[in-house]
């Protein structure tokens, strides 16, 4: 089975979920990494290090900035010519979009954000969460090729072995221009989707005696930040505190925010509304800290503490710091 894996990257730095897709491709057949961009030498080496059997490369100044139409045209022209059986993409903003357009170009079926995949008659069969993760559906794609985007952290990341190599084949650049990129603002970038550990805060962070909500939230998020730092994690938030303007939207976890699957999710002062759970219920271990013993978050948590986050969080930071020798 010939499998192409679209390696998503930002300016030459691959997003780790691309390697998860490569790992899956290796288990299913022959894995070619497809890399579109400019100045990709390091990324190409990384693709081999993470197990690519070969690399299909379009390295060109016209692809220096991600533009959906140029990336999709380049990929679909190559796929139409070389007829791979399966194209895998990471479910990132770019991966999802290139997959969507390429499927349209090739008149092929597309399975989005899947968490399990098998190849069996009559085609590619995937499982994916729908209705905000309340249920799973098995989807069948009978077209050749089949296009599939993989949910981050649903598939294991392969071990990196430095110094591997393999054939690099150039593919033709189709630098169609419908859009131009005028620049970037990268200040709010927080990579929740790749984080091993997420420490999240909700409206419980806005009540502290003697402080207004805004100052209480600032104090609370500072405490969460310290805990996250000890765990090399990222800080997340519920919609309540995002909507109130206490933390940027990029931190929001849930149905209308990020879908995350960290190994450890610590929910502090979050009640556990169904829309929040939709974004984090697939975390491996969930810890909840909440003053209300009946908060629904305890129904999905492995470990719960009924208590005040302003007391528990700093104590937990100190305990973990000591035990981890930091």
């Amino acid at each position: 089975m010939n499998i192409w894996v679209y390696i998503d990257h930002f300016k030459g730095t691959p997003l780790p979920v691309s390697w998860e897709a490569l790992g899956l491709a290796k288990r299913l057949g022959n894995a070619a990494a497809v890399m579109l961009g400019n100045h990709l030498d390091e990324a190409v080496q990384a693709a081999f290090d993470f197990g690519a059997d070969s690399v299909l490369l379009a390295d060109d100044p016209a692809l220096a900035d991600y533009r959906a139409e140029a990336f999709a045209s380049t990929l679909s022209a190559a796929a139409a010519a070389q007829t791979p059986d399966l194209l895998l993409f990471p479910t990132t903003s770019r991966g999802r979009e290139v997959a969507a357009m390429t499927a349209a170009d090739l008149n092929a079926g597309l399975l989005v954000d899947v968490t399990a995949l098998e190849v069996a008659a009559p085609g590619v069969v995937a499982t994916r969460p729908v209705y905000g993760g309340k249920v799973l559906v098995r989807e069948v794609c009978a077209s050749k090729p089949a296009l599939v985007t993989l949910r981050g952290r649903a598939f294991p990341k392969p071990e990196q072995q430095t110094g591997r190599s393999g054939p690099v084949t150039k593919i033709e650049v189709k630098a169609e221009t419908q859009t131009s990129v005028a620049g970037y603002t990268t200040s709010e970038g927080v990579s929740l989707s790749d984080a091993n550990v997420i420490v999240s805060g909700g409206r419980g962070l806005t009540v502290f005696p003697g402080l207004d909500e805004k100052s209480a939230a600032a104090k609370g998020f500072a405490l969460l930040g310290e805990l996250a730092a000890v765990l090399n994690g990222a800080v997340g938030a519920s919609r309540a505190v995002v909507d109130a303007g206490f933390i940027p939207y990029a931190h929001q976890v849930g149905q209308t925010g990020k879908l995350v699957s960290p190994d450890l999710y610590i929910a502090c002062g979050i009640s556990g509304a169904i829309q929040h759970l939709a974004g984090m219920r697939t975390a491996k271990v969930i810890v909840a800290i909440n003053t209300d013993p009946h908060a629904p978050i305890f129904q999905v948590a492995q470990y719960g503490v009924v208590g005040d986050l302003y007391q528990i969080v700093p104590a937990l930071t100190a305990a973990l710091k000591k035990k981890l020798g930091k």
Partner: peptide, 22 residues
Amino acid sequence: ALVTWGEFSEPPRRTAQCEMIA
């Protein structure tokens, strides 16, 4: 339709109860 929906299932439930730490 190139993609068809097959059967549905419920996501695996957490079997263990939440362990309360006091």
